[in-house]
């Protein structure tokens, strides 16, 4: 099939960007979206032009590296699917596709479709862990965990940290990302000792990074390739409220 692409090109964060238009022929419906971009890049190189820069690595939908706005939707039109797992069979001959980087103040553009998501790492540094050193852990079966809690914690823990939730939100809020980590630990006994301080530190860091407040529109859940539920945001709010009310500081 034939596809027309309008891609955001920006040489660096210092330079203004703009859309460039490219025409691709002989796109196979079996190709993944990124393989389609590979083909474009191969053509650009053969014309001695610079290829489109985009982050990607595992191409299995798990590393969270890839991500772009495709026709205004983070990761494109397919539900619970990362950009690398999106396939061209989802498009039709003659389609025009607009591709942009994540748009959020907290995610500055580095080049073309590549953005800086280190704000997520800094939120994790603020409290996304249990404070146990290597070597002094009790036997793994010493704590019994109700299966339901273990499963809910797992569902929250599957967040891949891609940033689609932020890109989808009109406030560029990181609530879904933060709530997933806070929920995972709030549901497990291992997270209990630092339950209060964790939620307060992570939320404070989230605010400091310049992410907006929750828009309550659930766009984040709709865009999330890992299927993280907004119920986690409700849990985050409960955790935060309870931590604030019972804070001893």
């Amino acid at each position: 099939m034939k596809i027309t692409l309008h891609i955001w090109r920006q040489p660096s964060s210092q330079v203004k960007g703009s859309f460039q238009t490219y025409h691709l022929e002989n796109v196979s419906s079996h190709m993944s979206f990124l393989e389609m971009l590979d083909v474009l890049n191969e053509q650009l190189v053969s014309r001695h032009e610079e290829p489109v820069a985009f982050d990607h690595d595992c191409r299995e939908g798990i590393c969270g590296a890839c991500g772009m706005m495709i026709n205004g939707q983070p990761h494109g039109p397919e539900n619970e699917t990362t950009t690398c797992q999106l396939h061209m069979r989802r498009f039709r001959d003659g389609d025009e596709i607009w591709i942009e980087p994540w748009r959020a103040n907290a995610f500055p553009v580095i080049r073309d479709l590549v953005v800086d998501r280190s704000a997520f790492d800094r939120i994790m540094q603020a409290g996304g862990y249990t404070s146990v050193n290597t070597g002094n852990a009790p036997d793994a079966n010493a704590n019994m965990i109700p299966k339901r809690n273990a499963d809910l914690a797992f569902d929250a823990a599957t967040c891949i940290g891609c940033g689609a939730c932020v890109a989808a939100c009109k406030n560029a809020s990181a609530m879904l990302f933060v709530s997933a980590k806070v929920s995972q630990f709030a549901l497990l006994p291992q997270g209990a000792p630092e339950r209060s301080i964790r939620v307060q530190s992570m939320v404070a860091q989230m605010d400091q990074e310049g992410f907006g407040g929750c828009s309550n529109t659930n766009e984040c859940e709709a865009a999330c390739p890992a299927g993280i539920s907004v119920k986690n945001i409700a849990r985050l709010n409960r955790e935060f409220l309870s931590a604030t009310l019972t804070s001893e500081e």
Partner: peptide, 19 residues
């Protein structure tokens, strides 16, 4: 396994709550 569980890694569990 002990270390990972202490870190909060959500391994699969049986209904009795064990791994």
């Amino acid at each position: 396994i002990d270390q990972c569980v202490a870190q909060g890694v959500p391994f699969a569990r049986d209904y009795g709550g064990l791994l």
